[in-house]
Amino acid sequence: MKNMNLGQQLVEYFINNGMYVLQQFSRHFLISIYGVLLAAIVGVPIGIWISRSKKLSDVVIGIANVIQTIPSLAMLSIIMLGLGLGVNTVIVTVFLYSLLPIIKNTYTGMQNVNEDILDAGKGIGMTAFQRLRFIELPLSMSVIMAGIRNALVLAIGITAIGSFVGSGGLGDIIIRGTNATNGAAIILAGALPTAIMAIISDGVLGFLEKKLDPSRH
């Protein structure tokens, strides 16, 4: 193996282990997506809720901010003490870190909706739910999507660290590379797909965000 250069080693690695990398790639992506999805299910309603009350929003966003400041390895380890080793711990960690961008952006999106449009909605007899469903949510969708985008990029990074508590994913390949002889190729084989996943997710959701932007219609 030693007479091959890094590029050749990398090719050799993918020939040997292509399926395995693919499995870990999809596992990695699923873990990140589940965490973000849960955060969206919880965070969007919270964002809507606190947009009705300034006091509440300060408190909730303050708490989410503190969570965000906590180094993720510390958070992961502490949650591990409670929830044990394995994938659930990582999903909960991803969930917690995804909350802030999603709550904050939902809140901002709601705040940015023009009062006049809401009044018009009231004028034509829309209920509060209808106003939310047909005016506020569509108008703030792009901003909410931006929050989900930030959350997903963060999530992919956190999932990589999750390998330290045994959740699997591309972090496994990176860690093994740091342990193996001439592991540079293996490190790359884990790190490149992780980086590519993050960059592509960022790009795709960025595209969606633009599509949903009402000012572009």
């Binding site: 990029v153 660290i161 993050a198």
Partner: peptide, 12 residues
């Protein structure tokens, strides 16, 4: 966007 774990490992 590159995950920190990937970036750190790439430094090795």
């Amino acid at each position: 966007t590159v995950p920190s774990m990937a970036l750190l490992a790439l430094m090795i």
